[in-house]
Amino acid sequence: MHFLLQTRVAAPPAQVWRGFTRELFLALAPPFPPFRLLRFDGCHRGDEVHLELGAGPVRRRWTALITDHGQLPDGTCYFVDEGQELPPPLRFWRHRHLMQPAPGGGTLIVEDLEYRTRFRWLDGLLYPLVWVQFAWRRPIYRRWFGQPVARATGPAPS
């Protein structure tokens, strides 16, 4: 399953890129499922993130490796995390974080997510849950990086 979710913020891409810290990672966490951050190296190639999901006797580890990061000629900053150890039913996880220059200023944060389970029907069944987990981030991004300024529409005043 693959989807894109975009959020426009006021800060420029390089500032947003520098803002992807442990503190932002914790702020972006949805209330469910409960999790504990075990390790956060950062967002550069070779860095790792380790989580423990769940509570009580039902706990699962999730480890991700940052497999790529950089800046494109157009000013887009990016990093990619890929699941190494995933909780069932997930079997594959690749999350590209793109911070693209937005027309008129600011940044378009793009969550480019691909995941798979063993069954396509289960991928589809999980889609609304995964989408909500990432839609949760939109107002948080805007608090951290600024609400984009509304652009005027129509003719310019004379």
Rank of each mutant, 00 (worst) to 15 (best):
A150R: 13
R60M: 13
C43S: 12
G42C: 10
G70Q: 06
P103E: 15
R137K: 13
G83P: 00
D68E: 15
P34H: 05
F145V: 03
R94G: 07
P12D: 06
G56V: 02
Y141G: 02
T76S: 07
H50I: 09
T63A: 04
H2K: 14
P30W: 00
L26P: 00
V16H: 03
Y78S: 08
V16Y: 00
V110E: 13
R137T: 08
Q15L: 12
P73N: 08
V132Y: 08
A152I: 07
R137F: 04
G46Q: 12
G54P: 03
P30N: 10
F20C: 09
G46V: 12
T67M: 04
A135P: 02
L4N: 15
T67S: 14
H50W: 14
R18N: 15
T63N: 04
P148G: 07
G70K: 00
G104F: 01
H50T: 09
Q84S: 11
F3C: 14
R22F: 14
Y115C: 07
R96I: 12
H2Q: 12
P103R: 15
R138D: 09
T117Y: 03
E82K: 13
A14S: 15
V110C: 11
T63W: 02
C43A: 14
D123I: 05
L28I: 13
H50N: 10
P13D: 01
P139S: 08
P13L: 05
P89K: 04
F134D: 02
P101D: 03
R22K: 15
L5Q: 14
R59S: 03
L90H: 02
G42Y: 03
V16T: 06
G75H: 06
A29Y: 05
R94S: 13
V80R: 03
G146Q: 03
T21W: 02
H50L: 10
L37D: 09
A29G: 09
R22C: 13
H97M: 05
D47R: 01
L37V: 07
L53K: 05
D74Q: 05
G146S: 04
W17T: 08
T76P: 01
L86D: 01
M99R: 09
R91I: 10
E111F: 04
E111A: 06
G56W: 09
R36M: 10
P13N: 05
F119Y: 15
V9Y: 06
R138F: 05
R60N: 11
F35H: 12
H44A: 13
Q6E: 15
L122Q: 04
G154T: 07
G42T: 04
W121Q: 09
R116S: 10
G56C: 07
E114V: 12
R151G: 14
G83N: 02
S158E: 12
R116Q: 15
D81W: 00
P87Q: 11
G42K: 06
G146F: 02
P30K: 05
V80N: 06
W121F: 14
L53S: 04
T21H: 08
C77I: 08
H44S: 14
Q71F: 08
S158K: 09
V16M: 06
P33F: 04
W62Q: 02
S158Y: 09
R138G: 08
G46Y: 09
Q6C: 11
R45G: 12
L90R: 02
P33K: 01
R142C: 01
G75I: 06
F92T: 11
L28G: 03
F40R: 08
G42F: 01
L108C: 10
M99A: 12
D123T: 03
